[in-house]
Each structure stands twice: as structure tokens, then as C-alpha cells.
């Protein structure tokens, strides 16, 4: 006889309330985590979407890429010695269109590479968000420090840095705008990257992201919120499952007295907990994934199935622990107390 489901059927409201709490809390966690991830995409998709690899900047740049200048002879040496290595620079800047309207962008210039856009002299490739702002292929854009004009060649998907749209330009145009001759960084994809190069400091992708001040602060805050939610929801789950089971101590005592195995009582509680958690999680996964699809264009929201699954497993484990802690009480129940407590 399946006592777990018989009880759920008979006490629908109670289990519905418990289920909706699990649902709401997990949905909230999924949404916040989607926002955290969305914001981090918005902040640094230029870097995040690169393959794994190492970034190198000058030793004396003090981990600030804008201060880094890599000596050209060293750069040449690196680019010839390591396959797919790229030298690049990233700088905030502005673009004006023909009617003088100004847009902030991040200029990115690199040596020839499959990981970055190849842009010819006088051309520019922009992040898609610029298209939504009314810029079209073939438009001409200017920059106060640049003698020539940029012609828009095309757009790229979600390529942002520091919440600004990326603008890929030719390396020579870059050098003119910022009046520099050296590039800030060298990027070498993982398989080919050397550990140590004298005079340079190496950063993994993750480490490099952490050197971007705004990125680090933002992600730390959001991740803290997500984990805070996970901990709070864990406690909520545990408390609710605990309360539900404590209410049944009298009943469990009677069942023990008539000869039910303690292990069967545990199974009842675990079955109920797993059933409720999985149903509620399935619902909030469906809704958060749905939201992922229909999230408004400007809203930075990105929730992968993988993140959702990882969080779901955390919720299940937490629910399981909560129920088990509550259940330890049951092991201790003396059938006698229940009998003498009177009507249940």
C-alpha cells in the first residue's frame, strides 16, 4: 500500500502549499541566476565567448590591461612561436554618426585571428545592439581622434565589454586614435599557451575577467545573492518538511506500535519530499526556460539548462537533508508516547 501518495491525495492543500513554496523559491533562484549570468554576458561576452586560453600582459601593468604595453619585438616573437596567438587592445571610445549623435563603444583591435573579426582599414564591425539603435550596414561613422571615416561592414551577435557594444576596427586605425604603437594583450588559445614568458604576466580567461573591476564587483554581488537564496531556500525547505513531519509524530508512533518498520516511515517521507520537489522544480524549470526565450531584448537574461540542472540538484540534496534531519526524530519516537498522547 502506498501510504505516501494516499496521504498526498487526502491532504492536497497542505502539499500544494509546500509545493508552491518550493516552486516560488526555486523560480526566484533560477531567475536571479539567469540575470547574473545575463549581466555577465552583457559585461564581458567579448572575453567569455572566447575559447579557453591564456592572456598575457606586462608585468608592470599591475594587472590592469589598460596600462599594459607589450613590446613589439616580444609580440612578434609570440605570434610566430605560438599557433593562433593574437595581440589585441581594448579601449573605451565614442562614435558619431552623420547627424552628430554620439554612441559609447569599446574599440577592439587585433592582429589577424580566427577568434576576433578581421577588419580592413576604414571599416568597422559592430555589436548587434548598435543595429537596434538605428545604425545600418554602409553607414559612415566618425571619431574625433580619427582622421578618416568608418564604414559599417556588418554586425556580430552579443559581443559586449563592460556593458558597452564592441566595435572591431583595424589595428592601424586603432593606433591612430589612441596614439600608441604597442598592443595591450596577447591571447593564446589553451592548447598552445606557454606557462611563463619573462616580462609578462599570464592570466586564464577566468582570472582575466576578474581583473576587470566592474565585472568582478557585479558578479560577486549577484553570486552572493544566488547563494544566499540557495541557503535560505534550503533552510525553508528543511523547516517546512520538518514541520510537516513533526505534526505526524503521533501518527508515526501508532504505526510503529502496530508494527510498521521504521524504514517504511522514512520511505514515506522521502517519497513525498522527492515527489513534491521534482514536480515543483519541473514547473519552475519550464517557466524559467520559457522566460529565457521570451525575455525582452534589452534585458540581460541568460539561463542555461546546465545551470538550472545544477541548482535543481542542489535543491534536491537540500530537501533530502532537511527531510532526513526531521526524520531522525522519527527514529526516536516511542510508540508509547504517541498512544498516551490521546487523540491525533
Amino acid at each position: 500500500m502506498n501510504l505516501a501518495f494516499k496521504e498526498i491525495k487526502r491532504n492536497k492543500v497542505r502539499f500544494l502549499i509546500l509545493g508552491s513554496i518550493v516552486f516560488l523559491v526555486s523560480l526566484l533562484t533560477f531567475i536571479i541566476s539567469g540575470l547574473a549570468n545575463g549581466l555577465s554576458q552583457d559585461n564581458a561576452s567579448l572575453i567569455k565567448d572566447l575559447p579557453e586560453g591564456q592572456f598575457y600582459m606586462n608585468d608592470d601593468a599591475e594587472e590592469t590591461y589598460t596600462l599594459s604595453r607589450i613590446d613589439s619585438s616580444l609580440q612578434d616573437e609570440l605570434l610566430t612561436n605560438y599557433k593562433d596567438a593574437t595581440a589585441l587592445s581594448i579601449q573605451m571610445g565614442i562614435l558619431n554618426n552623420h547627424n552628430g549623435k554620439q554612441q559609447s563603444v569599446v574599440f577592439v583591435a587585433s592582429t589577424e585571428s580566427k577568434n576576433f573579426k578581421d577588419v580592413k582599414d576604414g571599416e568597422i564591425i559592430l555589436d548587434q545592439s548598435m543595429e537596434e539603435k538605428g545604425i545600418n550596414v554602409g553607414d559612415t561613422l566618425t571619431n574625433p581622434q580619427f582622421s578618416g571615416e568608418f564604414t559599417v561592414k556588418g554586425f556580430v551577435d552579443q559581443t559586449k565589454f563592460s556593458h558597452a557594444a564592441v566595435a572591431f576596427i583595424n589595428i592601424e586605425n586603432y593606433k591612430e586614435i589612441y596614439r600608441v604603437n604597442e598592443m595591450q594583450l596577447v591571447f593564446v588559445p589553451k592548447d598552445n599557451s606557454p606557462q611563463e614568458i619573462s616580462g609578462l604576466q599570464s592570466f586564464s580567461k577566468h582570472e582575466f575577467l576578474k581583473t576587470i573591476p566592474s565585472f568582478n564587483a557585479e558578479q560577486m554581488t549577484l553570486n552572493m545573492i544566488v547563494w544566499f537564496l540557495v541557503v535560505i531556500s534550503g533552510m525553508l525547505f528543511a523547516i517546512f518538511f520538518y514541520m510537516m513531519n513533526v505534526q505526524k509524530i503521533g501518527l508515526f508512533g501508532i504505526l510503529k506500535a502496530i508494527g510498521l518498520k521504521t524504514s517504511r516511515l522514512f520511505t514515506i517521507m522521502w517519497t513525498q519530499m522527492i515527489f513534491i520537489t521534482i514536480t515543483s522544480l519541473a514547473l519552475s524549470i519550464a517557466i524559467s526556460q520559457g522566460f529565457n526565450l521570451i525575455a525582452p531584448e534589452g534585458m540581460p537574461f541568460s539561463l542555461t539548462i546546465e545551470t538550472t540542472m545544477n541548482l535543481s540538484v542542489v535543491f534536491l540534496v537540500i530537501g533530502f537533508i532537511g527531510t532526513t534531519i526531521a526524520s531522525l526524530q522519527i527514529k526516536k519516537i516511542e510508540p508509547l508516547q504517541a498512544i498516551q498522547q490521546g487523540e491525533i
Partner: peptide
């Protein structure tokens, strides 16, 4: 003891102590 209770003993108490959801 549990097995003996389950198989050979019957219990009646002051209150019926029935399982509410059955």
C-alpha cells in the same frame, strides 16, 4: 519484537488512533 507485534499482537487504545488519510 516488532515482528511479533506485527504478526501476533493486536492493539486497542483509549482513542482509536486510526490513520487519518486512509
Amino acid at each position: 519484537i516488532r515482528k511479533i507485534r506485527a504478526n501476533h499482537f493486536g492493539f486497542i487504545f483509549q482513542f482509536a488512533h486510526l490513520v487519518p488519510f486512509l
